[in-house]
Design a protein around this nucleic acid. Sequence first.
DNA 1: TCTCATAGGTTCTAAATTGGAACTCACGCA
DNA 2: TGCGTGAGTTCCAATTTAGAACCTATGAGA
Lengths: 150, 150
Amino acid sequence: MKWHELGEMNCPVARSLSILGDRWTLLIIRNAFMRTRRFDDFQKQLGITRHLLSDRLNRLVEKNIFAKVLYQEAPKRYEYRLTESGMALYPVILVLTKWGNTWLNEEGSHPALEFIHKPCGHKTDPQLVCSECGEELHAKAMIPVLEQAK
Amino acid sequence: MKWHELGEMNCPVARSLSILGDRWTLLIIRNAFMRTRRFDDFQKQLGITRHLLSDRLNRLVEKNIFAKVLYQEAPKRYEYRLTESGMALYPVILVLTKWGNTWLNEEGSHPALEFIHKPCGHKTDPQLVCSECGEELHAKAMIPVLEQAK
DNA sequence: TCTCATAGGTTCTAAATTGGAACTCACGCA
DNA sequence: TGCGTGAGTTCCAATTTAGAACCTATGAGA
């Protein structure tokens, strides 16, 4: 199966990964959440080749995750800003951060990246909970259901 | 920068993606959460080439995300089961599911994949909340802090 | 005994993707 | 006139992936 075919699959994970599932895309988005917006900044921060960065940014604009915004008239220069659907990827970044901190940090070989939640002022541990009962969600407690679209 | 160098970076997202950041790995893990355990089943369900599947499964065993468990003596046959750190990837799958359902399903072109939360019996919308105050987490409300490991 | 079927791979070649470096272009400035 | 900046594009070599065929051990059936 070729890769682009996955984008049309009936599984939302496959469709998400048809956009996000490569070595660089989520790192670009991570940096966008850290306020990076310009080509050269992404390139220097990530060490990605200019070639690939160009390709990935275009793809993400096409998929409506970034918007290309003019910030200078002459010469015309654009920056890349997260759209609403791009901002909606924040949970993906947070969850990957938590997993990496927890499981890929042998005997504290790296400093842990933690977060303070501004509204409450505390150091927070992001938890994935049920919208109905508030309990933390685990694989074994979930029953998947396919809902026919309206 | 070559890819394997990212695994040693000081960013938990980069370290996570050095394992998970390719076209197939998270799909393999998704299927593992749907109780797939054997080589041929993964291969048939995903349409991945046997070559790559073999490579990815070995890599995931090496990274302690799958454990290779003997399930038949003669001839010796192994199956791949999620370890504790593999099970901890469930939030990643869930969050990708939610994002794909919400943002990659133009005018209901696909049935939405939803979940019933067994303990409370309701259809659930997974939410990422603060462990301290219970509010939903958004990028703008978070202040990252590097904690030196003990 | 011979042949198939099963499970879990490995090997091969061709095609596609990536990495790295150099080059381009349109300015603004000294 | 030449230099610096931002945002790419072009080229070639190296790596990775796709697709198909092959291999191995065992058990079942004719």
